[in-house]
């Protein structure tokens, strides 16, 4: 049973109704995530990555498809059973101030999930809070502070401690770095990595930052307009991206060049991500793809396996 993936999604679809129209936020997404590994989900705003993360842990119910977590189909569970299962799957959001209870102390915030899931008595719980503060690099004295008294990086550490309080198997990290300063982002990345090793955690790491995703992930899924257009092991994807969107997205990352002569030419994709309310018949990326042909506008490309788990949805994978 241990070889079985912790999380697997098969052909997951999710719509939102907007008036009489339908916003197709996640389209036919499949992937598996093994225990102790990280799946990075990268894409621009509106690509459906957060919706995917919420579907994966049962916060949203998909229209169709199957989500298997730790051996059970989470959307077949009763409400009560799902709530119990939630102990094993936690989520950390982008904005700690919106997610933490500002009227109670940091300690209380971290203790709350333990009370909800009836874990331990009062003294065991407070011991656990101190243990968690230690493990995320905060002072025990911070337990008495209120969330708004801490810096952004410290608040995000509280979020991590709260998510880990119930000893989950899976943590969805939804843009957890975006509100932080660069030096603090790196601290949180290292912390997430250490905690993963220590507790054998699996992460779904959702981010628009390719650099962060490249650092933390074992596998990467690149999303565009609700679909995974390319998926594969991190090294393969970074060294040999095959989908035109992945290629141009990687080129758009402004890294520090080796010298002035090696600076970016600032060439990138034209246009912006089209509205998900009016999807095309063919490949969703065809409107911006510099290499698009007739077939791309008429027929959606199927996901093709290129070997070693590298998959790409493009008519021209050669």
């Amino acid at each position: 049973m241990l070889d079985e993936p912790l999380l697997s999604l098969a052909s997951v679809d999710k719509y939102f109704r907007i008036g009489s129209r339908r916003l197709h936020a996640v389209r036919n997404v499949s992937f598996t995530l093994s225990r102790g590994q990280t799946l990075g989900v990268v894409g621009e705003s509106g690509s459906g990555k957060s919706t995917l993360g919420r579907c994966a842990i049962g916060l949203l119910t998909p229209e169709s498809g199957r989500i298997q977590f730790d051996g059970v189909d989470i959307h077949q569970l009763t409400k009560r059973a799902l709530r119990q299962k939630r102990k094993d799957m936690q989520i950390i959001f982008q904005d700690p101030i919106a997610a933490l209870n500002l009227r109670t102390t940091v300690g209380q915030n971290i203790e709350d999930p333990l009370i909800v899931h009836r874990l331990g008595n009062r003294s065991e719980r407070s011991r656990r809070v101190f243990e968690l503060l230690d493990s995320v690099g905060l002072d025990r004295a911070h337990a008495e502070a209120f969330p708004y008294e801490l810096s952004g990086g410290q608040q995000q550490r509280v979020m991590i401690a709260r998510a880990l309080s119930v000893r989950p198997k899976l943590v969805v990290c939804d843009e957890v770095l975006s509100a932080l300063d660069m030096s603090v982002q790196a601290q949180i990345m290292l912390l997430l990595q250490d905690l993963q090793k220590e507790h054998h955690l699996s992460y779904v790491f959702i981010s628009h930052s390719l650099s962060a995703v490249g650092y933390l992930s074992d596998f990467i899924a690149v999303m565009y307009l609700g679909q995974v257009v390319e998926y594969g092991p991190t090294e393969t994807l970074l060294d040999r991206p095959r989908h035109p969107y992945t290629v141009t997205l990687f080129q758009s990352v402004l890294e520090i060049p080796d010298s002035k002569a090696h600076r970016s030419t600032l060439e990138t994709l034209k246009g912006e991500i089209p509205s998900p309310l009016q999807l095309r018949v063919g490949c969703a990326f065809s409107s911006r793809c510099p290499w698009a042909q007739e077939i791309c506008r008429l027929q959606p490309p199927a996901m093709t396996e290129l070997g070693e788990g590298h998959q790409v949805a493009c008519h021209f994978t050669e």
Partner: peptide, 23 residues
């Protein structure tokens, strides 16, 4: 310190070394 806080996709062998503390 700022430079060492950024993971480079081009030079992935360079380890991440964040600055301690925060502003």
């Amino acid at each position: 310190g700022l430079k060492a806080s950024i993971f480079s996709l081009k030079h992935r062998d360079i380890p991440l070394k964040p600055i301690a503390g925060s502003a």
